[in-house]
């Protein structure tokens, strides 16, 4: 093992500095935000990257901007701060719940939005399905410039992202939709959820659903939208029982992942109940 020329952790003071440091470190480098995943690498028997670049001091990484038509969330925003900032915003309640109920209070104070989205090995990330429902986009910065791509595209590419790139912020659109986040921990709280169903629904004046976004997390290795359920929800007024029935009919689309915490069939089997709960939270 050749020791890296760089310290094991360099705390970058600015974005420019962080990008330079990541570029210099190349394949040896990796960003470190809250540390709540990376610091557990030894428990997973994973090697740590030789040279982390700490993002905790990067100016602007912790910003949350709530505009009338969109919201910008810096990658360094912690779950706790996000939940607090979105507490009273009706259309972002799903995201607020995802941020406010994940893990436990101390981890929520440390774990960041960027970390949650970038950790390819973490299937139970709460923010991912919530942001998929908001059709979020992410900004990826490198010394070459800034690139913006959909969260879906990012999820597909994140494991093979080239060195020197950094997720800097998340853009989500605001709307008249209402959102909810149904998660299922095995205990009352404190677990990673074995299944997550996030939902954002826009209704007309008569209460009919004109647009539905549903995303499922933790059931498969990577969270994804559930277009068939979205279609089933669209048209009639929102109704918990019919959402549950539709989810029951459609749940076979998912191939639940086997885990130490729960078998694959279970993750799929609880989706109808989560669909019902999510809808109930919107009524």
């Amino acid at each position: 093992m050749t020791p890296s020329a760089h310290p094991s952790l360099y705390v970058a003071p600015s974005l420019e500095d962080a990008l330079n440091a990541l570029a210099e470190r190349g394949a040896d480098g990796a960003p470190l935000a809250g540390g709540t995943w990376i610091m557990r690498a030894p428990l997973r028997h994973e090697a740590k990257s030789p040279a982390f670049v700490g993002l905790g001091r990067v100016a602007g990484f912790g910003r949350i901007e709530v505009h009338d038509d969109h919201v910008i969330i810096g990658a360094g925003v912690t779950h706790a701060r996000l939940a607090e900032a979105l507490r009273d915003i009706p259309d972002l309640q799903g995201l607020a719940a995802a941020a406010g109920r994940s893990a436990n209070p101390a981890v929520r104070r440390a774990a960041t939005v960027g970390g949650n989205l970038c950790t390819a090995g973490f299937a139970a990330a709460d923010l991912v399905p919530a942001l998929l429902c908001l059709e979020a986009e992410v900004e990826i910065a490198s010394r070459a410039g800034v690139q913006r791509l959909s969260l879906e595209a990012f999820l597909a590419a994140r494991a093979t992202l080239e060195p020197g790139r950094l997720l800097t912020q998340v853009h989500a659109l605001r709307s008249s939709a209402r959102s909810a986040h149904a998660r299922l921990p095995l205990r009352k709280a404190g677990d990673y959820p074995v299944a997550i169903l996030s939902m954002a629904v826009m209704r007309d004046d008569a209460g009919r659903v004109v647009r539905a976004r549903v995303a499922v997390g933790s059931v498969e290795a990577v969270a994804r939208r559930w277009p068939a359920l979205e279609a089933a929800l669209t048209g009639p007024p929102l109704d918990a029982a019919s959402a549950e029935r539709a989810a029951t009919d459609l749940a076979g689309e998912f191939d639940g992942r086997e885990g130490v915490d729960a078998p694959g069939w279970y993750r799929v089997a609880v989706l109808p109940a989560l669909a019902r709960r999510a809808v109930a939270a919107l009524l």
Binding site: L43, R187, K188
Partner: peptide, 27 residues
């Protein structure tokens, strides 16, 4: 809550407080 499973190769699958679930204050 507290489950221990052993795989076919004789490994204990629960490796810490994340996977071995003891009751928390809310439970």
């Amino acid at each position: 809550h507290e489950e221990v499973s052993i795989d076919a190769l004789g490994h204990i699958r629960q490796c810490g407080f994340e996977t071995y679930r003891v009751p928390l204050a809310g439970d």
